[in-house]
Write a protein that binds this DNA or RNA. Structure first.
Length: 119
DNA sequence: GTCGTGACATGCG
DNA sequence: ACGCATGCCACGA
């Protein structure tokens, strides 16, 4: 087949990065949500991997990604945890007992934004 | 090829 | 609310 379009791991990671870049300040998104939006249901861990692989030069707002419970997925107290927490609070995201109220701060992508995506 | 690990999610008790 | 099991699957040892 000359027209086969195989989606490699890199393509998927690329999609996650593209989506994260769309999240506005003051809002958060969950790993699972990113995977879903990328057309990869059930692949939340891949979203996490994508962020780990991302380089600082990409300037991704990775701190806006939390788990489905609205909590930061780093060990409480570690350096990364603190950095993420600080950035979120700087943006106005309210964190109570290490938790964020998703009903209030979870990002709801715009239809047009999704249609404009390359996938 | 098998196994353990992981920036996850969900269901059950 | 919390821990534990299971599902998921890429990666490295």
């Amino acid at each position: 087949m000359t027209t086969s379009s195989q989606t490699t791991i890199d393509d998927k990671v690329q999609r996650i990065w593209t989506l994260v870049a769309l999240v506005p300040a003051g809002k958060v998104v969950s790993y699972g949500q990113l995977a879903d939006l990328a057309g990869l249901p059930g692949r939340a861990r891949l979203a996490g991997r994508a962020l780990k692989l991302a380089s600082a030069s990409q300037n991704l707002p990775w701190h806006r990604v939390v788990n489905s419970q609205g909590k930061i997925s780093f060990a409480k107290g570690c350096q990364q945890y603190q950095t993420q927490l600080n950035k979120l609070q700087d943006e106005g995201v309210v964190v109570v007992s290490g938790r964020i109220k998703l009903t209030e701060f979870q990002w709801q992508p715009d239809i047009g934004e999704l249609l404009a995506l390359p996938f």
